[in-house]
Amino acid sequence: MTSLRFDDVTVRYGTTTAVDGVSLTVPSGQVVGLVGESGSGKSTLARAAVGLAPVHGGSILLGGEPVPTRGRHRPLQMVFQDPYSSLDPRMSIGESIAEAIPPGSSRAERRAEVERLLELVHLDPGRSAALPARLSGGQRQRVALARALAGRPEVVVADEITSALDVSIQGAVLNLVRELQAELGLSMLFISHNLAVVRYVASHVAVMHQGRIVEQGPTDRVLAQPDHDYTRALLAAVPGRRSTS
């Protein structure tokens, strides 16, 4: 696994600056949480990393090299927020996963790989012919994770992957993220607006506000002794915190 480095990255849409000079490193084998509110630019940063948003300034480096945004080999993969929109409704989950496997392997190898990946995310490999409509939201999100892993990524970007899920299912996906990180040594940029979720999966956290990173550091330090006012405001807003603090 290699590290992902954002160096003074700026993204503009017309005259609005969505991401303003952001520098952030996802070290090898670590999960870095990125928190912030809607419009803070955290999703734009993720989309810029995988080439879905135009970068106007700075550089995004993967292991010291620019992230390839052309060709079949994509060492940076992304998991999207809404598992109801991120899987093609007309494609079986097996096909969706197989599509992301780099070319050059035989049909049998691909099938074996799809089965291995489904097993890895705790889905029955026998269901690879099922259409997404037959799956629950949590199961779909696990398929989406398997698809991201199929590209043999060095770093995975997870953009609010639990916020469209029912609470009972959220836990299973978070457990899976932690398990994959521990087993595969996966590096991950984990984006969420939920501090408790980020606290649970990430070793480092960066707080984004109005396109800038206002604070970053080890999760326990940032959450226990926030330096920036905005981080403090976010912490105070976590439901159920007030009565205890």
């Binding site: 060709g71 080999h73 994509r74 993969q77 992304m78 929109s85 991120s86 093609d88 698809r147």
Partner: peptide, 13 residues
């Protein structure tokens, strides 16, 4: 605009 097209793009399709 759907995410599955973006996902396929990210996968290098």
């Amino acid at each position: 605009a759907r995410d599955y097209v973006a996902a396929a793009r990210v996968a290098g399709v």
